[in-house]
Nucleic acid binder design. Structure first.
Ligand SMILES: [Mn+2]
Ligand SMILES: [Mn+2]
Ligand SMILES: [Mn+2]
Ligand SMILES: [Mn+2]
Lengths: 217, 217
DNA sequence: ATATTTTTTTAGATTTGTCTAAAAAAATAT
DNA sequence: ATATTTTTTTAGACAAATCTAAAAAAATAT
């Protein structure tokens, strides 16, 4: 019963591991899950007993192969549902995350197969995040933050690394949406903001925004 | 947390009330939910405290207006998801119930609105069960069991009152699917089985089957 | 009217996931 | 090297949903 609590822990540990490649600390999980460190310790012990994480007291956790596989599968489901919500039900990209957080826990492999087929085997979700295949494999791509471009380099927006609704809405206002072509002009010394050309206009965006936009050249 | 336990109780009480129009007994719920009578008594008290059921000890329960509304909303969601699974993802009608039992608990009114629109405002689910509208109102229809037809009456299959996979699969084998036109021939005295004409063939079906097929004239 | 059977409720436990407060360990600063 | 701060764990409790066994009430049979 209630197996989606475990699923949410695995997902959180997975994402925290991606960011920094070392054992995830109890407090980091607690923060990310809006719960207490004590609760996390309790849960870690359960996950460890189920062989879903490697755990030694005071040393943080890493996912076992089994735990990793489970986490990736949930992420796969989450992202496919997001594609469904945007492509089939016409939600906007800033409206789908919370609903997908519920849908990702529905258990039925054949459902996900059919959904994937219906969506025509998408490679990325509405935010440009890669959708792992049935075996948990991610396609190899070359996405990097917009702020790492050089003068006069052209690039195409392919994703975002921040998913808050306010950020996504702001991007839409600026036409900084997936598929959009942009040209890097220069960095403004004073505040590190960035000038870019988009749809024949030159605009200025903060470094904060720039580094959360992923592009490919 | 875990509000779908409550939702499942409400749904079960709703369905049991439909069958016999009187307070639902503890044991009936326990049977239907595969749980113990003691657990049901516990839960009934909680539902009663939340004013979702009317309860007096030893007298069974009925849904309050609030409880009824909630139950109907879950049924609405269940049936819309079943339509989605059959129409959009091409599942067969005997494959969708268990998945819909999970999907029905996803919380998002706008999701259901969009789903309903995507499905083109269906009136019935894949089993011919009516889909209540947003206000919980059911369309008024005139469905009755096939076994109540008279000699030579023509009718169209519009639903089923039994949802087991084995029953649905059997119906499909016999071409007894929704939309199919049939003609009632006669009842066989010996075993109360029924002769019908379907697609220019005459076939015999048991009374058990006949009474679980809903038709309209 | 009494006895028997069936149904329902209570009593007391258990499991899951959570909490706060206190103790222990590890990391950091002086 | 010691003291201070931060992080993590333990101890003990709680709410939700479940269980079994026993008691109580209601229904049924004689
Ligand atoms: Mn998301
Ligand atoms: Mn996403
Ligand atoms: Mn169903
Ligand atoms: Mn149905």
């Amino acid at each position: 019963m209630q197996s989606f609590t475990i699923e949410n822990y695995l997902k959180k540990i997975y994402h925290l591991t991606q960011r920094e490649n070392k054992p995830v600390q109890t407090n980091a999980i607690a923060d990310g899950m809006n719960t207490s460190a004590a609760s996390v310790t309790d849960m870690i012990k359960k996950l460890s007993a189920k062989k879903l994480v490697n755990y030694t007291k005071y040393q943080g956790v890493t996912l076992t192969e089994e735990g990793n596989k489970k986490a990736i599968n949930i992420i796969r489901k989450h992202r496919l549902w997001e594609v469904f919500l945007v492509n089939t039900l016409h939600f906007k990209w800033d409206e789908v995350h919370e609903i997908a957080d519920q849908l990702e826990h529905v258990k039925s492999d054949v459902l996900i197969d059919r959904l994937e087929k219906h969506l025509n085997y998408p490679i990325t979700d509405p935010h440009g995040d890669l959708i792992p295949d049935k075996n948990g494999l991610f396609k190899d791509v070359n996405f990097k933050p917009l702020n790492l471009l050089h003068q006069n380099q052209e690039a195409t927006i392919v994703g975002v690394s921040e998913h808050s609704s306010s950020f996504l809405k702001r991007l839409e206002e600026l036409n900084l949406i997936i598929g959009q072509k942009i040209t890097f002009i220069n960095v403004v010394d004073f505040d590190n903001s960035i000038e870019i050309k988009i749809l024949d206009n030159q605009i200025n965006i903060s470094k904060e925004i720039a580094k959360n936009i992923l592009i490919t050249i």
